[in-house]
Amino acid sequence: MRSTITIAAGLTLIGTAVAAEPLTVYAPDYFASEWGPGPAIKAAFEASCSCEIDYVTGDVLPRLRLEGERTRADVVIGLNTDDAERARATGLFAPHNVDTMGLTMPVDWEDDVFLPFNWGHTAFVYDTTRVDDVPDSFRDLVDNHPDLTLAIQDPRTSVSGLAMALWMHRVFGEEATDAWAALAPRIVTVTKGWSESYGMFTDGEVEMVLSYTTSPAYHLIAEDDDTKKAAIFPEGHYVMVETAGQLARTDQPDLAQAFMDFILSEEFQSIIPEGNWSLPAKLPPERMPEGFAALAMPEVALIYDSAEAEALRDTVIAEFEAGMAAR
């Protein structure tokens, strides 16, 4: 027993002598899991730098705020723009120092702390075999289609739910509460997270689910199923952008910067479409996988920048609560 411990300790020492301390990357669970883009990105980056990435998963922002100055994170990835202002307010982040020219996103990017790495439109996804009369606008969905049932995520617990509340506010303005009230009878369920809603949708319990315009790509590419489609609304679709940032107090600034530089590289970006089933922040259309070209995409992209989103948060949640209570 004793000798085993000694040997193990010896091996650890050798290990640390060869490779420097790994780069600690805080990431959401879906990102770093075996079925997310994380592992491929890790492999690609490690091949280029003879270094090591350690993912730490969980709720990125709350964890960062709990830890404050004591955080072990060098880089944080997966921060939504709607969360970014709060992350910025921690004062823990350093500028990303990456040239953001040539982004393939429908919105301008001027943030010098948080670097976008993927994005997607919020959208209602349906099954063509079960929905004939597809709403042709958000207004049409709100005013008509009394029998169309929806599953959405709670804006109080989920980023996609919050995106929908912001979307409603952006499209309906002062009438957002009324729009919620009009939708309320058809909102069969409001779930804590995306998975529950989407599971109920694929099980046939609801006709439409709050998801992303890229969701059909998964079914198309991975399952060879072209019956899932996103309803496209001319009013525009709210855009969710996920970003990364590096910590000011990282003990490996060079490695952290190297990772930040890697984010917009083609190698990283080409992993996103089929790794995260979302749209890469910087990838020429010809490098996109085939299935994505077939996706219907909105003409208009709507977004609040992170400061506006932060200021509107309580308002849009109040609209959701008031509208749903009127049911």
């Binding site: 109080r156 409001v190 779930t191 049911r327």
Partner: peptide, 17 residues
């Protein structure tokens, strides 16, 4: 999570939520 998913909306908000 159960209360929310089957409660059908914010009226089914519990302390834990």
């Amino acid at each position: 999570a159960v209360a929310l998913a089957l409660g059908g909306g914010p009226r089914a908000t519990t302390v834990e939520l």
